[in-house]
Write a protein that binds this DNA or RNA. Structure first.
Length: 154
DNA sequence: GCCAACGTTGGC
DNA sequence: GCCAACGTTGGC
């Protein structure tokens, strides 16, 4: 079982939206490195939900992969901003996962705190200039994060 | 709103 | 295949 971190702009899709929906297809990722991580994800993997491009960015919750290798439907939707004219039904370019809401943490773990706690080597997120919206989190760092937010796993 | 960092595009 | 121009991300 692996841990990941995925970014979402709360203006577009917040942890509250996610909780209300219960589960969602993580669509719209159009970066090859991020997509490759999405392809690696397996059912049962856990991912931190991160609020980006907002006043106080940070980790706000946890989700679980419930379906892997999902073809992102927005690549075929001409009305979608994520439409990709070069992708074909026979060999779709963009795969993603379906995730299920697990928890919203009682306290947000801010980027500021993450930067103070972890080195760029420990956590890719705090690397300067990092723009990946999907990234792996090593198991021991994930455990530390879960402790920091007082999350009691079932 | 600014801009650094980085990815992508397209001319050559 | 190089690289300048351009677009996007996302913190500040």
């Amino acid at each position: 079982m692996k841990y990941w971190l995925m970014k979402s702009e709360p203006n577009t899709y917040s942890i509250t939206d996610f909780q209300e929906e219960g589960q969602t297809i993580w669509d719209g990722v159009r970066n090859y490195q991020a997509r490759n991580f999405l392809r690696e994800m397996k059912v049962g993997d856990l991912a931190f939900f991160y609020h980006s491009n907002t006043k106080i960015p940070g980790i706000v919750g946890l989700m679980k992969v419930i379906e892997s290798n999902v073809i992102d439907p927005t690549q075929f939707d001409q009305q979608s901003p994520y439409f990709d004219s070069k992708s074909t039904m026979d060999s779709p370019r963009w795969q993603t996962v379906t995730v299920e809401f697990v928890a919203e943490f009682s306290e947000q773990l801010t980027l500021e705190t993450l930067k103070k706690t972890f080195t760029p080597e420990e956590l890719l997120l705090v690397k300067r200039g990092n723009r990946l919206s999907v990234l792996p989190v090593s198991s021991n760092i994930a455990q530390k994060i879960l402790q920091m937010v007082n999350y009691q796993s079932a």
